[in-house]
Design a protein around this nucleic acid. Structure first.
Length: 282
DNA sequence: ACCCAGGTGGCTT
DNA sequence: AAGCCACATGGG
């Protein structure tokens, strides 16, 4: 692929690629072996490198497309994560180690539809297999971007493209029982559009998708709609909340209520730090 | 062979 | 409202 463009962002803080891409919010970025990552976002393939120098960082994006504004928004570079982290630390010292160790998490500005489908696939599944499933979907139904850094890359399929898939084809992609959920999603998306309103209203709208329950809806709220009040509780978060705050492992309602009152507007940020930190410790 | 993974739908109490 | 359990697939 010719026409590779290089975009550079200087003087950045509170950013680390591994923490952004490995914290469980996205599934299409892969590490190259040297700390840089290759992935696809918004129909563009990209290779991203982060360089730390003194107190600041520089992000270099080599991409097949996407404006400077697009990538700035995608990496959420205009949001002050330092302030959010300081606010969380001031309210709860139990976050000290997680925030200190995983300092550079940012919530990517991902496409709503892609997040919706990705987290339907994620249920009762593990991250390596989720990534394979999503890559298969892109390869089978997404627009071919072209060869980029030694591999042909594919955009995530649009709702119209995924609507073309038959149940038999989806089953052949080894999606498991979730294939029926994916088969139903494009039409529902066409009818409902992108949810608006309060967090509760959006959450409720998401629950009307087959295959979307409370946990997946919270992931979509946080990663697809950038609602930082969302606090997804999966099997890992149940263990973490039980261990850290003394909840009964099954008391998900109590955990949700606590997160809402205790972390408020920054629940999603707190959740990401806790999830990623404790998961990386196994 | 068994258990688990960024859970949910559907059925039974 | 709460408690089961099946659901595909692949890795440990």
């Amino acid at each position: 692929m010719d026409n590779i463009r290089t975009i550079r962002f200087d003087n950045l803080h509170d950013i680390e690629l591994a923490h952004i891409f490995e914290c469980g919010q996205c599934f299409r970025w892969n590490e190259c072996g040297d700390g840089s990552y290759i992935g696809v976002a918004g129909g563009n393939a990209a290779h991203v490198v982060l360089k730390h120098k003194d107190d600041a960082s520089t992000l270099v994006v080599e991409c097949t497309g996407g404006s400077e504004e697009y990538w700035c928004s995608y990496f959420d570079l205009d949001t002050g994560y330092g302030d959010m982290k300081r606010a969380l630390l001031a309210s709860d010292s139990k976050l000290d180690e997680a925030i200190d160790t995983c300092y550079g998490i940012r919530i990517l500005n991902q496409d709503y539809w892609e997040v919706l489908i990705s987290f339907i696939v994620s249920q009762n599944n593990n991250i390596p297999r989720i990534k394979k499933c999503i890559e298969s979907l892109a390869r089978s139904y997404g627009t071919e971007i072209g060869e980029f850094m030694g591999e042909v890359r594919y955009a995530f399929p649009t709702p119209e493209q995924l609507a073309e898939a038959t149940l038999e084809e989806l089953a052949a992609l080894k999606l498991g029982y979730r294939n029926t959920y994916l088969a139903a999603a494009p039409e529902h998306y066409k009818e409902q559009g992108v949810p608006t309103g309060s967090a509760e209203e959006k959450h409720k709208a998401l629950l009307s998708y087959l295959g979307v329950g409370p946990k997946v809806a919270n992931c979509i709220l946080l990663f697809g709609l950038r609602d930082f009040t969302a606090f997804p509780i999966d099997v890992w978060m149940k263990k973490i909340m039980a261990e850290l705050y003394g909840f009964d492992i099954k008391d998900v309602k109590g955990m949700q209520k606590f997160a809402d009152e205790h972390f408020g507007e920054l629940g999603g940020i707190a959740q990401q730090y806790l999830f990623y930190f404790y998961r990386s410790m196994q």
